[in-house]
Amino acid sequence: MNVRDFQTQLIHYAHSIGIDKIGFARATPFPDLKQRLLVQQQLGFASGFEEPDIEKRTEPELLLEHAQSIISIAIAYPSKMKDAPQSKRGARRGIFARASWGMDYHTVLREKLAQLEAFILIHVPDAKLKSMVDTGELSDRAVAERAGIGWSAKNCSIITPEFGSYVYLGEMLTTLPFEPSVPMEDECGDCRLCLDVCPTGALIEGGQLNAQRCIAFLTQTKTMIPQEFRAKIGNRIYGCDTCQTVCPKNKGKHTAHQQAFTPDPELVKPLLLPLVEHTNRTFKETYGHMSGAWRGKNPIQRNALIALVHFKEREAIPKFISILHEDPRPVMRGTAAWALGELESDEGTSALKLRLENEEDATVRSEIQLALTKGEN
């Protein structure tokens, strides 16, 4: 088999099944990435969601014996939605980041990679392959950068000339010796808009992110969001798009051809108070197909309480009081206590004092005491 001819066939096939970009890279180690990951680890900047073994993240042959090439794919997602509902008093809405619009991208990209694998094995039955999307060991961005999909930007995204940074990435390790693509030149230049506008200062410098401060990370945690970040969450209930929306390279970039990612406005910009009412079952039925549902309802509902405070939604005070007294989850009770302190009302203060007499969780007690102190100032 002529590998070069087959590579051309594979590229045509990839485009025919809806893959927007495909590139090829050598499966050699990633020494620069290894150093960056070690620094991230030493500084405590990692999110904890990554593969903890840095060797596996930077040594492809540890994942697939005799690996020679890595195929990188990118699929574009939309940056705009039609008929976005308006948030208004008594009907406040949160927002899921664009990376959670439509079908869970893990499902879509895994399906595309499975189709690529099948195509390869028809032509090269003895090929060894290993695919991954996001949760795999390799760094999707490092592979995409090497494979010429785009350049690694200061906001820690891959930016493509065609779609900006609004792309999902996946890759496949293979024992086939494909011709490597040419990496792109970095086009960020002197621009530092993403660094300057990051709400929490999570972007330390170009290409370095302190995930512990990143709103996208914070909205996915299951514990209390630290006090210093709560006011910065805004109405985000999953993820954060700020460093993408301010990027000049994303200006005018909107692709709607991937039907799987067409957003349902009522789901990606949901009413906050009804969102808090979901049970595990109804949340899964409603949002389970979206990538933003992967951590379950608890973080989303906690974020919804913070968003209601962002809007100074006093109509939500009875709901905060109900959660404070009745919700079995300490994080929800603690967040409700903070919310009542922020909105300051006589009924809220009375509820906080009453709950303090019976609250056994130390973190919730601390939140109640802080909220009462705020009311006294």
Rank of each mutant, 00 (worst) to 15 (best):
V3K: 00
S131Y: 07
H106Y: 01
H325L: 15
N155S: 03
H289P: 07
T160C: 01
M290V: 12
I204T: 08
E315W: 09
E367N: 14
T174P: 04
F96P: 00
T262D: 11
E326G: 08
E344H: 08
I122D: 04
L272V: 14
S291V: 00
A307C: 08
L129R: 03
G341K: 05
I317V: 10
S322A: 13
R93V: 06
A304M: 01
T219D: 04
L267Y: 09
A153N: 02
I17L: 07
E145S: 12
S69T: 10
L340T: 02
F30M: 08
E367D: 13
S139I: 01
I120L: 05
Q258L: 06
F229W: 13
I54H: 08
A99L: 00
F178I: 06
L62M: 11
C198A: 08
K222A: 10
D361T: 07
A307T: 10
L275A: 10
V108G: 02
F96L: 13
Q244E: 12
K297C: 05
E179H: 03
V133H: 02
E360M: 05
P318A: 01
A216D: 01
I11M: 07
L354I: 10
A293G: 07
I323V: 10
Q259K: 13
P52Q: 06
Q369M: 13
G90N: 14
V246L: 08
Y238M: 05
L43V: 05
T282L: 12
N298E: 07
T221D: 01
R92Y: 15
I368R: 00
T279A: 12
G296E: 09
P270R: 11
G164Q: 12
G341F: 05
S291G: 00
R4A: 11
I158W: 02
P31K: 09
I233A: 04
P270W: 12
N280K: 14
K88D: 06
C243Q: 00
R110K: 07
N280F: 11
C198W: 00
E376I: 06
D104S: 00
T255L: 09
A256I: 00
D361Q: 10
G189R: 00
G334C: 04
E187R: 15
I11F: 07
K249G: 10
K130W: 10
G164F: 06
E51G: 02
D327I: 00
R92F: 13
G207D: 06
W294H: 12
A25V: 03
K269V: 13
N2K: 10
S345D: 10
V309D: 06
K319L: 15
L272N: 15
S139E: 05
S350Q: 14
S16R: 01
L275E: 13
K284E: 14
E171F: 04
A27Q: 05
F261I: 12
I158A: 02
Q227I: 14
P125L: 04
R146F: 03
L340S: 02
W151M: 03
A316V: 13
R192C: 12
V182E: 11
S322D: 15
Q369G: 06
G201L: 07
K112Q: 08
L37Q: 08
I233M: 11
L352K: 08
P180I: 02
H325Q: 15
